[in-house]
């Protein structure tokens, strides 16, 4: 089986992959990085979102071989090495931006991509950007609130629902 090499969370990695090995499988089974979740496996739900060369992609709908040589960031790469959460993760905790938590890795990765493009989005822009991330608990309200808070905006006027 051929080896596929890339940089994941700043570290050079290499693992065997078939042609049909998805990036999500490569990360989870090849590297043991199970923070990236596979929800629907049909590119609808967004639980598997990671960044490839700085762009949010659904890792269940990209082959590992297509990421050869790329810089990949997963949810495991978001906190500081000492475990300190980044601003988005901390905001999800502070504002209870999760219920069961299954969609959270993809939500955080999409939120990071959004804030990179648009550092102070409106509530409508956040909701629009999350079109491809489904929360089966329907806990969108606090997810949106957490992302607005992470962008440094005042969310004290938004009711906790």
């Amino acid at each position: 089986m051929p080896k596929v090499s890339m940089t994941v969370n700043g570290k050079a990695v290499s693992a065997e992959a078939e042609g049909r090995t998805l990036l999500s499988s490569y990360l989870r089974e090849g590297l043991g990085l199970t923070g990236t979740h596979v929800g629907c496996d049909t590119s609808q739900c967004g639980a598997c979102v990671v960044h490839v060369d700085g762009k949010a992609v659904k890792s269940c709908t990209m082959f590992a071989a297509e990421a050869e040589g790329a810089e990949v960031t997963t949810i495991e790469g978001m906190a500081a090495p000492d475990g300190t959460l980044n601003a988005i993760q901390q905001a999800f905790q502070d504002h209870h931006g999760l219920q069961c938590g299954f969609c959270t890795p993809g939500m955080v990765m999409s939120a990071a991509a959004l804030l990179e493009e648009n550092p102070t989005p409106t509530e409508a822009e956040v909701r629009h950007y999350l079109e491809g991330n489904i929360c089966r608990c329907t806990g969108y309200h606090n997810i949106v609130k957490a992302i607005l808070a992470a962008s440094g905006q005042d969310v004290s006027g938004i009711a906790a629902e």
């Binding site: 590119s43 979102v49 949010a56 709908t61 999409s110 491809g132 991330n133």
Partner: peptide, 9 residues
């Protein structure tokens, strides 16, 4: 088209 992650691929 699609959603942001789909548009990146």
């Amino acid at each position: 088209i699609g959603d942001p992650a789909v548009r990146n691929r």
